Every structure is written in C-alpha cells, then in structure tokens.
Simulated assay, not measured.
Amino acid sequence: MSSGGRQAGAFARLCLVILAVSSALLVSGPAFYLRIMKGFQRNPSSSSSPPPPFSSSSSSSACPNCICDCPATISLQKIAPGLVNLTIPGGADCGKEDSEVGAEMEKGRADLMKEEAALRMAVVEDERRHMNYTIGEARRQGLQYQKEAQKCNSATEACEEAREHAEAMLKREKKVTAAWERRARQLGWTDPA
C-alpha cells in the first residue's frame, strides 16, 4: 500500500506541476509572444518572420488613431452640489433639536477623555470580575476532580485488597481440596473422568 501511496503522491505532484506551468504560460504567454514579435520586427535581418497579431498589414509600426465617442465628463458639482465643499445644507445647527446630541457636541476634549477613561475602567473592572469568577470556577472544579480521584483511589485500593484476600482464600481452598483428594485416593477412590 505504501508504494501505491507513493505513486499516487508522485502523480498528484506531477499534475500540480503541469497545472502551474500551463497557468503561467496562459497568463504570460501572449505578452512574451508580442514582445518577441516586436523584437523580430525591429531586427531587419529576419524578414521571413510573420507579422505580430493585431497589427495592420502596412509596414508602419505606429497604431492608427482611435476614434472615441465618449460622453462629456460630468462634474461632481452637477451630480451632488452639496458634496463639493463637503457641507450639508442646514448643517450648522445639526443636532440642536436633540438635547443629548447637542450636549455631546458641546463637550470639551477633557470631558471626552474623562468619559473614555471611565469607560475603559468599567471594561477593565468587568474583565477582572469575569476572570475572578472563572478562576473560582476552575478551583471548584479542580477540588471536585480531586475528591473524585480520591474516591477512585480508595475504591481501587479496596478492590485490590479484596482480590488479594480472594487469592489467599483460593490457595487455602486448593490446599484443602488437594488434602481431601489425597485421602480419598488412599481410601481407593478413582477419578471418574
């Protein structure tokens, strides 16, 4: 199976290499072809080369002028007059109707920084509370696992003691059975099997 896997891996690599080379040629091939053809056109010694694609049959290398029927450009002033100077009509009294927005707009830089600091402190306090809760839960679960492990250890010890006791009892019973079997043979008993 490993040789089949190696062959499949080698085949997959070969397919990827072929795919990569063909993709590279597909993307860059036309550009290289045009560049090579232009180089052959400039070289006067190679007159038997075919003309490059998309060129006219004339011997001049200059492109003919393009004929464009493009529409006239539309100015931003005509599309959205309010956006040219980035002002909104009636924007001077923006937020004056809403008392909360108006109060927020009139706050100074120091007040905004105090609010930002208070918000960050609140976030830090929430994260600390969450971290303490998580640590407490981890401790509780750890103690519970320790109790379960102690129960398992004591049960294992009890089972081990019971097994050792049963082995000792089995040895004693085998000795008693062997003694009785020996007495029975001495008295003429034979094994029916």
Rank of each mutant, 00 (worst) to 15 (best):
T73D: 15
Q141N: 02
E167V: 11
R185A: 11
T87E: 12
A110H: 01
G102R: 15
A20S: 15
G82P: 05
E181F: 06
A122Q: 14
R183M: 04
L112I: 14
N65S: 14
M105H: 02
S49Q: 08
E104C: 06
S75R: 09
A31E: 09
S22F: 01
L14M: 11
V123Q: 12
A72P: 13
A110R: 01
D69L: 13
K171A: 12
R139P: 01
S22E: 09
S23C: 12
E164P: 00
P89R: 02
Y133T: 09
S55T: 15
S3R: 15
S45W: 04
R140M: 06
E100M: 13
N85K: 12
S58K: 08
N43I: 08
S60N: 07
E100F: 12
N85F: 10
A103K: 02
E104H: 11
E104S: 11
V17N: 03
S75M: 10
A166D: 13
R35D: 11
R182V: 00
K107Y: 03
S3W: 10
P50Q: 01
F40Y: 06
L16F: 11
K114M: 15
S99W: 00
R13F: 07
I74A: 13
F11T: 07
S75Q: 11
T87G: 00
M169K: 10
K107H: 04
K147T: 04
Q144M: 05
G188A: 04
R163V: 11
S60W: 06
L26A: 09
R183N: 06
W180A: 04
A92G: 15
G39P: 02
V176F: 05
G39V: 08
G5A: 05
P89L: 02
D98N: 13
C66I: 10
R6D: 12
A20H: 00
R182K: 14
A149T: 06
S60K: 07
A184Q: 01
Q150E: 09
E115A: 15
P64N: 12
E161V: 13
A179N: 03
S56F: 07
S49G: 03
R42L: 01
L26I: 07
K38C: 00
C70V: 15
A72D: 15
W189N: 12
M121N: 08
P192D: 09
R129M: 11
Q141V: 07
Q146C: 02
D98V: 14
L14Y: 11
L16P: 02
E164Y: 01
T177F: 03
W189E: 08
W180S: 02
